[in-house]
Computed example of a mutant assay.
Amino acid sequence: MPEAGSGGEPGDPADILLVEDNPGDVRLTREAFTEGGISNTLHVVTDGVEAMAFLEQRGEYADAPRPDVVLLDLNLPRKNGDEVLAEMRADEDLQYLPVIVLTSSEAEEDIVESYELQANAYLTKPVDPEQFIETVRTFKSFWLSVVRLPPGGRD
């Protein structure tokens, strides 16, 4: 099996891909990771096309690490989160990579669609910055401290 990212065991540092086009949300996410003492590596891309290039290690992302988990916004330019998730689940190398939808949408149809596309979780971004930071910390404490992530990577 290909080599794992870096977070195979609960509590191990992990590579996280944040797919987010809002600079404020990227800043808050980084802040939450820093304040929470999270030693994981946060990689950021700003649209769905870049996300797939990163995940497939194409172009400027040829040397990108395989992330252990993806934090995916739905409302993205060029290719939205649902399209990214559908492509990932159709790709043999990416189909089991954990994807946490982290979006401002509370629409029931978005939640249903995300789970139909096999998202592992759906988190709604709070408007309040402190609550947003707390949401990211909660993600960290569960997904990066308790859950055992599947091995991944490429040969």
Rank of each mutant, 00 (worst) to 15 (best):
P2T: 12
P2I: 04
E3L: 07
G8Y: 12
P10Q: 12
G11Y: 13
P13H: 09
L17D: 12
V19M: 06
V19I: 12
V19C: 14
P23F: 12
R27T: 04
R27I: 07
E31F: 07
E31V: 05
T34K: 06
E35V: 05
H43N: 06
V44S: 13
V45R: 02
T46R: 09
T46E: 09
T46N: 14
E50I: 01
E50M: 02
A51Y: 03
E56Q: 15
E56N: 05
Q57W: 02
G59S: 11
A62Q: 15
D63P: 00
P67M: 09
P67I: 11
P67L: 10
V69K: 04
V69M: 11
L76R: 04
L76C: 08
K79Y: 14
K79T: 15
N80L: 02
N80T: 01
L85E: 08
E87I: 06
A90Q: 07
D91A: 06
L94A: 05
Q95W: 07
I100A: 11
V101K: 02
E109V: 08
E116M: 06
L117P: 11
A119E: 09
Y122E: 10
Y122C: 08
Y122D: 08
Y122M: 06
L123K: 01
T124Y: 03
P129Q: 01
F132Y: 08
T135Q: 08
V136I: 15
F139S: 09
W143E: 03
S145C: 05
V147Y: 05
L149T: 07
G152S: 10
G153E: 04
